Simulated assay, not measured.
Amino acid sequence: MAATSAPIKVDVGTDQLISHAAHFLGKAKKDVVDAAVREYIEAHRNEINDGIRVALNQLDGSPKSAVSLLAGLSPDQLDEYGGMPAES
């Protein structure tokens, strides 16, 4: 199966850094970005996992908890904005 790619947008300064690194490393820009992202994620894996745990702890299986998490609102704030329709 061929790998698919998706475009990403970076600011001009970052693009220049990627271009210079790719040139002097003799690599394609996409390979530099791929390696950088993988290294960054590995270096921050504990923080990412902590965020996942916090998010999962907020979910109780109800639509209200899912909407609350996705909207970035506490369940009380969600209720203040009209709450969720009653489940049937």
Rank of each mutant, 00 (worst) to 15 (best):
M1H: 00
A3S: 09
A3K: 12
A3P: 01
A3D: 07
S5A: 11
A6Q: 13
A6M: 13
V10I: 15
D11T: 14
G13W: 05
D15H: 15
L17A: 09
L17G: 03
I18Y: 00
S19K: 01
H20E: 12
H20A: 14
H20M: 10
A22F: 00
A22N: 01
H23D: 15
G26I: 02
K27D: 11
A28Q: 13
K29W: 09
V33D: 05
V33K: 09
D34E: 15
A35R: 15
R38M: 14
E39V: 06
Y40I: 02
E42L: 11
N49M: 08
D50Q: 10
G51I: 02
G51D: 02
R53W: 07
A55G: 00
A55C: 01
L56Y: 06
Q58S: 12
L59N: 00
L59A: 00
G61F: 02
G61S: 02
G61R: 04
P63M: 04
P63N: 06
K64Q: 15
S65G: 04
S65Y: 11
A66R: 15
A66H: 14
V67N: 02
V67I: 14
V67Y: 10
L69Y: 12
L69V: 07
A71R: 10
G72H: 05
G72M: 01
G72W: 01
L73I: 01
L73N: 01
P75T: 05
P75Q: 07
D76Y: 03
D76K: 07
D76R: 05
D79W: 08
G82C: 08
G82N: 09
G83A: 07
M84W: 03
M84R: 03
P85H: 08
P85K: 13
E87M: 13
E87C: 05
S88G: 13
